[in-house]
Design a protein around this nucleic acid. Structure first.
Lengths: 202, 202
DNA sequence: GGATAACTATACCGGTAGGTATATACGTTT
DNA sequence: AAACGTATATACCTACCGGTATAGTTATCC
């Protein structure tokens, strides 16, 4: 399947989405206004509203777009690295570290968005839940391929560790959160063979 | 030392701080305005500004206040539980779970605040850094008391795990993040005895 | 009884928020 | 040649933002 995932966006619409993605992540959802986004994208507010309808919908589109980029980056990275299934499980930590390095290191965009979207009815909330669910499932699938005795348990452990590493990388405490998370993950995978098999997994 | 930590606040000032604490955490820093806080506290805007000077300073006061409440809750909980040092290390996870249960379960207030305070010069940023640093040091001290071969390593591992559990509890994925984090911590402490001692720790 | 501190009430400031209206221009497509 | 989609420019709406100013009230302390 070619990367033809674009949601049929006009050139101006794409510019708005790209600009919004950067500004929302860097400045925060409430801190930047639609006027500022339109201006930075070289587009009038009218065009922005024609393409996205409302700010909340633009926020949801931003989260969806970021999730897509993250998924393709992550799966591409893991496939490129190759190696044994258990090594793939660990290389997700390298993918995360490099992703944060090329981005603005402000932690998890979805956790940050959640902090600004207390209303469960907000369209962005569903995207956030989807992103986290997908990530956990992806780790579970990798853990299954590695034929560990309790794949779902290992996956959840590594998932928690990644969430923590992302948050810690944002706050800067401890300074080496990313590398450190990987070594912890390695320790967890190593001891995973001793987890009693409770018949869980997929 | 008696709990005489109050920063000499007038009754109206205390009401403002309590109200702001709840609203900032529940709604978000930018989502609620000073007018709304003053109104909810039954106070005029003048009084609020006489007591706190600016919204940014009120935010910093909120974070400081919450950090103080958290520290005394955590240390009190751990001391009350008692047990062997390694059991104390694990009971921090119970403290965290119960803390989130009695609060509004919106994840870590400091991580959430960070998401809305991109400016490193904001007075709140220093409070966030302090909170995370203190927490890591507290875990390191407990790990030292447990005479584990590499206390700083175990502490950082558990720290990452707690950060992750907090974030995951906020997003709701996985559903049982809190209990699950504790069992993972138990596994980490259990294998900690096999960590090669690199002469670190305190 | 006079000063001081803690407070209320109200009105105001410039700026910006999200969102809408109207009218115009440029290409394609048909 | 007409119609449509994409975009522009500009002006406007109501509502609220953080913050300030002025004046008056209440209670306590010395």
């Amino acid at each position: 399947m070619p990367p033809e995932k674009q949601r049929r966006l006009t050139p101006a619409g794409k510019r708005v989405l790209d600009t919004a993605s950067e500004l929302f992540y860097r400045e925060g959802l409430h801190a930047i206004g639609v006027e500022g986004i339109a201006q930075a994208a070289g587009v009038t507010k009218k065009t922005l509203y024609d393409c996205f309808g409302s700010k909340d919908d633009l926020i949801a589109a931003y989260l969806r777009n970021r999730d897509e980029r993250w998924r393709s980056w992550l799966t591409g990275f893991v496939d490129r690295q190759g190696g044994a299934p258990s090594e793939k499980l660990l290389s997700t930590f390298d993918a995360l570290a490099q992703w944060q390095q090329k981005e603005n290191a402000r932690g998890c965009a979805f956790v940050n968005a959640l902090a600004e979207l207390p209303d469960t009815a907000n369209p962005g909330r569903a995207v956030i839940a989807e992103q986290k669910t997908w990530m956990l499932e992806y780790l579970t699938a990798l853990a299954s391929e590695a034929s560990l005795p309790a794949p779902a348990t290992v996956a959840r452990r590594l998932f928690l560790l990644q969430e923590g590493a992302l948050a810690a990388h944002g706050t800067g405490v401890p300074g080496d959160a990313m590398e450190f998370a990987k070594s912890t993950a390695a320790a967890l995978v190593d001891t995973a063979h001793r987890i009693p098999d409770s018949g869980e997994g997929r």
